[in-house]
Design a protein around this nucleic acid. Structure first.
Lengths: 243, 243
DNA sequence: TAGTGGTCTAGACCACAAA
DNA sequence: TTGTGGTCTAGACCACTAA
């Protein structure tokens, strides 16, 4: 995985992109670090400069790196704008907002998938799914309620970990080799029902963001169905648009 | 404007990108149309194939075109996903949702910019701004309230047009040569106050999306400060994320 | 001054779509 | 079979950064 395979069907530049991306994910290069130059990588992997540039361009498009002429290529520091473009952990999200994140696990359980859940995760209704319900805190105050649903056979025993401490994404990557590469989501503004109002410490019918997100692995398999309720009075979404 | 200037400071591929982009904006090429091939454009503008490809890649990144090997490059058909990535007109937004759009102008007026508005539009407080307040309908039912604020000196007489019929963006482009190329926005979930509840036909405190958007011209000048309230029970935001 | 990324070229071979 | 876009190379010159 740390070299380019000439016999692969995958183009060189995509192979190099995957290598660099994995290294960034794994913390080999950290935000602010300078990556090797185009020339260095060309020598290391025996690739032409243009091919190396193609891999870098993909990373730039992902917002993972930025480049400065005369200086080098650097791992990007996450920004609050990325919340609507990249899959980002609650912890990182809160830190970018200058808030101190916290987590309480409300409940975990196995159950049979409803028709709705089953269709989103592309399984038969009744398939065993793992549920993880967490209350998210910012500076000690409730911010969000998150309900994660996973197909249990794809990650058996996933509920054994303590997700007050470990990010779910990291557990999926480390224990099952599942990397979330893509997601699609719907965002609604909804009123808080009684249960949510109590959990989040807001009034009944207070406005909440309700986000339904399906995340896919690199192979295109739907891995997680996430439902998040954010407090409308505390949570703001930011993003940039192009004409 | 329809040829590449070798003496310009702007790279060829960016010049070509601007040319093609303007042509798409102006409807020279419509969604689904096939664009000229790389070879054709290379001959037309006397550019190498790689330079033409760079321009095409920018258009692909913008989501404006897609390319099919062996077939050609085509103008993309807008999708509902683009609402959080591209500046899109209410009319097109509703059509993508399969709804019939309508518009009523609530009021237009000139006034002095408040401190908040002034700072967003990068002018002095008290500067004369033009306000345009519209009620947006979908299938005849209220969907959104939009309040556009523009610096009047940048588009004198802008309020003379009938914005129940003409898109504001088109008027800015046609009458003042102002093209909105970039925007930044904040999205909140807020309760409807009495005035909004009446305008939108919802209950007091019903959840609404509240979007504040500043749009910038190609020169980086803030042109429009837009405030939109969408009905939470009818409006859904969609988007895709990358890992 | 040395090293970096930005732009641009000419040319090659390939996979794929359409006629 | 022809034309399309996809990948890859070697090489050149430039603008900019940092030492």
């Amino acid at each position: 995985m740390d070299s380019v395979d000439p016999d692969s069907q995958t183009p060189y530049y995509q192979q190099l992109y995957s290598i660099l991306r994995r290294q960034i994910d794994d913390g080999v290069w950290r935000p602010g670090d300078r990556l090797p130059s185009e020339a260095e990588l060309g020598q290391t992997y025996d690739l032409s400069r243009i091919t190396v540039r193609q891999a870098f361009e993909m990373l730039v498009n992902d917002g993972l790196i930025y480049r400065r002429r005369g200086s080098g290529s650097y791992v990007a520091v996450p920004t609050i704008q990325q919340g609507l473009n990249r899959i980002i952990s609650f912890t990182d999200d809160m830190r970018q907002r200058g808030l101190h994140p916290g987590t309480r696990v409300i409940s975990t359980r196995l159950e049979a998938a409803s028709a709705d859940v089953a269709s989103r995760l592309n399984v038969e209704p009744g398939t065993e799914v793992a549920l993880l319900e967490r209350l998210r805190l910012a500076d000690g105050e409730p911010m969000s309620v998150e309900i994660s649903t996973l197909v249990h056979s794809r990650c058996p025993g996933v509920l054994d970990s303590d997700y007050a401490e470990i990010p779910l994404r990291r557990a999926l990557a480390d224990r099952y080799g599942i990397h979330l590469e893509r997601a699609a989501q719907e965002i609604r503004a909804v009123p808080a029902d009684m249960a949510l109002a109590l959990q989040l410490g807001v009034a009944m019918r207070a406005p909440l963001f309700y986000i339904q997100r399906v995340s896919f692995s690199g192979e295109g398999v739907p891995v997680e169905y996430l439902r998040v309720y954010h407090r409308g009075d505390r949570y703001v979404l930011y993003n940039e648009l192009r004409g």
